[in-house]
Design a binder for these strands. Structure first.
Length: 717
DNA sequence: ATAGGGTTAG
């Protein structure tokens, strides 16, 4: 009997024996070591090398001794060591030792649960060995082999097995066919999965489930829903796996009604709320924003694992409920669950979203203590967190300390530089990543463009935009939005509007942000209009309003307070205060102080007392104790030279014990003093006025208010 | 005997 060839080991660099007909068997690289510094890593690698070669030489006992040494030196043992040892046991036919190692793996199972452990490779190697030894696989072996192909995404090997299946006539076996559907789905070849599925004469629920899951895994959720529908029509009883995949599809599509129906179907069919079903429900409710439903499902689940906890934490983080997220983390610890890299990624992301540096640093330290920093996802989150907290140097040094860099990690640091307008650093990374053989994607291009726009280098931004198009990258929604907003911020409102039109021509659906951007472009152009009517941009203000109407009526976007704010600002600048007020009153939610404040400011400019008083009334109801509102109203009166009202307000403020807002502008103070003096003020406060005026003088000159004040003889102290 | 499922980063 031929023995296993020496070079068919788990060593990823060793080419596979050519005696098998299966093409391209290249086991995935197995890393994720827990590192304690560079020296330890080198030592660790030398251990692996020695163990590997001992195993190959059949000196399994010596390999195990080395392994014991490693444990006593408290090395964190990575999965590849177990793989080598097991392979050695197979080679030496040492079942007992193999079982002992297997037991160790089970003991460490939690640690490796989300990693490749090398067993898929073992399965495939075993299959090859069978073939070499003349044993033909049967329809019991083939599903396992296909499962391994799927797990390793070895489409070449999988297709080979498919050919073997056809040759041997196993295709009619429902187990084999379902496995083929699953394998093709996992390898991303959903068309072949569908073909196998369609050709099946007999389909059981697993076959249906595999087809649904294949579509979900390939981001074809609509097709998944269709298959689920067909399955219902055929009267096939769903299982918890069916519902889990269907809920996943519904979540991706934000299909609220469908997902709820899925929940109902689970109940009708008496499926108990197990971990998988519950988790997919929490995911669905979280994605469609039904937080309370997610919480309810969570509270009713009896068996939870770290994924379940992470999902609800993720739900809170995504909806900005950082407090709830942190409380849940605490509860998770109290119930003796350990944080994993996903939990840490979430905590770091919450820190980034709220610019909470202290929390972020705690998270970073936790990652260092528990060896999570080598995880690329965690590393990206650490870099992102420091970037969002304004600690760009920290972000950069964490990036430098990483050894494994994927596209997202590069993009994260580049995005952080771009956000701060450090365009030079951003473009440097853009070239460096290409030197290190990581090709940029659209997100990388977007960051470079953003960096240039943020640093006022409009022409360079435009240049990069044409370069990216020339290289065949389709600008996406973010590209367009970045350009539109960036152009406005750099004072090119008219170009922003043209870009927005080009975006629509390229059939990119605008979102809230791009519409906001173009609305502010209209506002900017409108204000230019006042100064340079000669340039004749007439009509563009109306375009802003048209975008708004279009957005609500045609694109079915629910306008937010921000949208209304932009439109109110547009109308106000146009002097159309009545319409602005009507719009505020017709909003489906109560106006906030900002939108009221902007209209009040417009009332002052246009000396529109009546509306100003009305808006102030709303503001006082909203913020009864705010001195700013008194000052704003008083400014409205002052602009209309209603000094009696101004001093009445001032007395009222004093009665209420309100102090002047220290942040209010010099102009406001100046006008107030102007008003005060012009009104019937008591003499006792004159000194106070003069002391303020001493501070004011310079500012007043700068602002051109000298004349105004001098006319009232206030400066003649 | 054998096959199917849920979470995380820009």
């Amino acid at each position: 009997m031929a023995s296993l060839p020496i070079n068919t080991t788990l060593n990823p660099h060793t080419p596979h024996s050519k005696t098998t007909k299966s093409p391209n068997l290249t086991p995935t690289h197995l890393t994720t070591l827990q590192e304690n510094g560079k020296n330890n890593r080198i030592l660790y690698k030398s251990y692996i090398k020695q163990i590997s070669s001992l195993c190959k030489d059949g000196q399994i006992q010596e390999a195990v001794d080395l392994f014991t040494d490693m444990q006593s030196e408290s090395f964190q043992i990575g999965p590849e060591i177990y793989g080598e040892l097991l392979q050695g046991c197979v080679f030496e036919r040492d079942l007992l030792l193999g079982q002992q190692i297997h037991a160790l793996i089970i003991k460490n199972g939690e640690l490796f649960a989300r990693n490749e452990t090398g067993f898929s490779e073992n399965a495939l190697l075993g299959f090859c060995e069978m073939q070499e030894n003349g044993f033909l696989g049967d329809n019991f072996v083939v599903p396992n082999v296909l499962k391994a192909c799927g797990a390793l995404q070895l489409i070449g090997f999988g297709k080979g097995v498919h050919g073997y299946v056809l040759k041997m006539g196993f295709g009619v076996c429902v187990f084999v066919a379902s496995s083929l559907v699953d394998m093709y789905g996992k390898c991303g070849v959903w068309g072949d999965a569908r073909k196998v599925f369609d050709e099946m004469l007999e389909r059981n629920v697993v076959a249906w489930n595999s087809m649904i899951a294949s579509y979900v895994q390939n981001a074809m959720s609509e097709e998944a829903v269709d298959v689920f529908h067909d399955m219902r029509v055929e009267g096939v009883e769903p299982t918890h796996v069916t519902i889990a995949s269907f809920l996943s599809a519904s979540a991706n599509l934000c299909a609220v009604v469908e997902g709820k129906q899925g929940h109902a179907i689970a109940i009708v069919h008496g499926l108990e709320l197990d971990n998988i079903l519950g988790t997919s429900m929490i995911n669905f409710y979280s994605k469609v924003g039904l937080i309370e439903d997610a919480e309810l499902v969570f509270s009713r689940m009896l068996e939870k694992d770290v994924v379940t906890w992470n999902l609800l934490i993720s739900c809170y983080v995504q909806h900005g409920l950082v407090e709830s997220a942190l409380n849940l983390c605490q509860l998770m610890r109290l119930e003796n669950f350990r944080f994993d890299s996903v939990t840490l990624a979430l905590i770091l992301s919450a820190s980034a979203n709220t610019s909470n540096l202290k929390l972020g640093q705690e998270g970073h330290c936790y990652c260092i203590r528990h060896n999570f920093e080598s995880d690329v996802v965690v590393a990206s989150n650490i870099v992102n967190m420091y970037g969002k907290c304004g600690k760009i140097n920290h972000a950069s040094s964490v990036f430098s300390s990483t050894t494994k860099r994927d596209l997202v990690l590069w993009n994260t640091l580049m995005g952080a530089y771009a956000e701060q307008g450090l365009s030079g650093e951003a473009i440097k990374l853009f070239y460096q990543m290409q030197l290190e053989s990581v090709p940029p994607n659209v997100i990388s291009w977007n960051s470079v463009i953003l960096g240039f726009l943020r640093s006022g280098q409009v022409n360079k931004a435009k240049d990069m935009f044409s370069q990216m198009k020339a290289l065949g990258f389709q600008p996406n929604l973010i590209t367009w939005t970045t350009l539109v907003s960036g152009m406005v911020q750099n004072g090119f409102g008219d170009e922003a509007i043209l870009l927005f039109q080009k975006m629509l021509e390229s059939e990119t659906q605008p979102n809230i942000l791009s519409i906001m951007g173009v609305l502010s472009a209209c506002t900017a152009v409108a204000s230019l209009q006042f100064g340079r009517a000669i340039h004749g941009h007439a009509g563009l203000v109306n375009e802003g309003l048209e975008f708004f109407v279009d957005m609500v009526s045609e694109r079915d976007v629910e306008p937010t307070m921000e949208h209304y704010g932009c439109v109110v600002s547009l109308l106000s600048r146009h002097g159309n205060l009545d319409e602005a007020l009507m719009l505020i009153l017709r909003m489906p939610f109560d106006p906030d102080a900002r939108i009221l404040g902007s209209l009040l400011a417009a009332c002052r400019e246009h000396q529109e007392i009546e509306i100003g008083e009305y808006i102030s009334k709303l503001l006082f109801e909203l913020e009864p104790g705010s001195s700013g509102n008194f000052i704003a109203l008083s400014n409205t009166y002052a602009a209309a030279e209603r000094w009696d009202e101004v001093s009445r307000l001032r007395v009222l403020m004093k009665q209420k014990g309100l102090k002047k807002n220290p942040g209010c502008s010099w102009i406001q103070i100046g006008r107030e003093i102007h008003a005060f003096v012009a009104g019937d003020a008591s003499h006792s406060e004159t000194n106070e006025i003069y002391s303020i005026l001493a501070l004011l003088r310079q500012e007043m000159q700068l602002l051109g208010y000298v004349q105004m004040v001098r006319n009232d003889e206030i400066l003649c102290s």
